[in-house]
Amino acid sequence: MTPLGYARPRDVADALDRAAAPGAMFIGGGTNLVDLMKLGVETPAALVDVGRLGLDRIEELAGGGLRIGAAVRNSRLAADARVRQRYPVLAEALVNGASGQLRNMATVGGNLLQRTRCAYFQDTSADCNKRVPGSGCSARAGDHRNLAILGGSPACIATHPSDMAVAMVALDAVVNVRTPAGTSRTDVRELHRLPGSTPHIETVLAAGSLIESVDLPAPVEARSTYRKVRDRASFAFAVASVAAIVQLDDRRVRDVRIALGAVAPRPWRASAAEDVIRGESPSTALFESAIAAELADAEPLRGNAYKVPLLRNLVVRVLCELCGVDPPVRSLA
């Protein structure tokens, strides 16, 4: 690591001022950024610690929603009784992420803005268009077993690794952002850009913007779940995950919201699948055609093609469970 400045700003305005200095970066819990600094992937000239700006509260919004401060630790958010009762899918996603120690450190803002765990992004001797624009992509011909099948580009197939953000996308959460010019709001589902030819530009946020909080809209009467598939039962990143929220009328799906994790450069809202299901009578066949519609544009490579049937089976099974439909019995093919 190179010598490093450090500041603990007085308030958000002071934090924005300090972040405008060349090479300055915000730091929340540090679980990702400190690691990337050790690896030489990030070389900030100075850190602006935003962990103690009073952004660690969870507040009620008019109408039944919640406003979650960006510095709330992941474990506190998962433990909050209001989150567990009104947004169980979010609490489930949180407790499925990382380890107990990391959840006690990691912040909500940092979780949203965490970087991909693509091995080539983390290895400064490899080619990576995200880390060094124009250097190429070692993953395409290399180990891409856990990389994207949706939304990638020739330049980059890195995945966003968060569990929490997948649930937030399904919940239609909104981030409140502060810039020197004022405040703005962005849907979490629109926060991360697709890579295209500029994978180093990861979000729609202007440089020096600070996420202050995340708003969860008022909860709806629904069944929901977060289901994660990984290489070991605990403390591993997803190879695929799904957050699903289903509202059933008598015999029909009044509304459905599906978000997919670890299969795309951002938490992936499965709008095409939702459109197939909404208003229809739930059945295995319906769910299979829905996920087929979502996966129509999938671009799997040799090493991650397994994610296509995995995701299909995962989504169909979760939707069957939520809708009380017998899941299909089938071979692995």
Binding site: Y6, I27, G29, G30, D35, S75, Q101, L102, N104, M105
Partner: peptide
């Protein structure tokens, strides 16, 4: 609270 002291400055 338990934390990883290697990841905190």
């Amino acid at each position: 609270l338990r934390i990883n002291s290697c990841l905190q400055l």
